[in-house]
């Protein structure tokens, strides 16, 4: 268990409310909570698929929020939790586009368009000068 996890466990033991449901309750550590919320905003609810789990009322979305908060409180990084979820549900569950061969066009097309546009403008400027 990491130091943060240990501190959280101790904090939980000391707090009057022992059982916190992290589906709806924030983590006591503000930094961890911010990380968790940022991740929730970029994980797709697999029930109501247009929504991130942070804004979904589906039970399964609540379960995923709880899982994210618990894992982050236990010291996992947001990207580790994201890859756990992708390992279960596939890339579709993450709103963050991954860089890999099949998604290469996503990243390359804007670059090519910029280059092409630049070339067009350069040609026109040259012609004007001449």
């Amino acid at each position: 268990m990491s130091a943060r996890g240990l501190i959280l466990a101790l904090a939980l033991l000391a707090s009057p409310v022992l059982a916190q449901d992290y589906a709806e309750v924030s983590l006591p550590d503000a930094r961890a909570e911010a990380q968790a919320v940022a991740l929730m905003d970029s994980i797709r609810c697999v029930v109501c698929q247009g929504q991130p789990i942070s804004g979904s009322n589906a039970d399964l979305a609540g379960d995923m929020r709880r899982l994210i908060r618990e894992r982050i409180a236990a010291g996992e990084s947001p990207e580790q939790v994201r890859s756990f979820l992708i390992g279960r549900y596939g890339d579709w569950v993450s709103f963050k586009p991954e860089v890999k061969p099949i998604t290469a066009p996503l990243w390359l097309v804007p670059l090519l368009a910029l280059l092409g546009g630049g070339a067009l403008v350069a040609r026109r400027l040259q012609r004007r000068k001449a």
Binding site: A23, G62, D63, R66
Partner: peptide
């Protein structure tokens, strides 16, 4: 808490 469902 949906743990098994998510694990699957």
């Amino acid at each position: 808490g949906g743990k098994a469902q998510i694990a699957f």
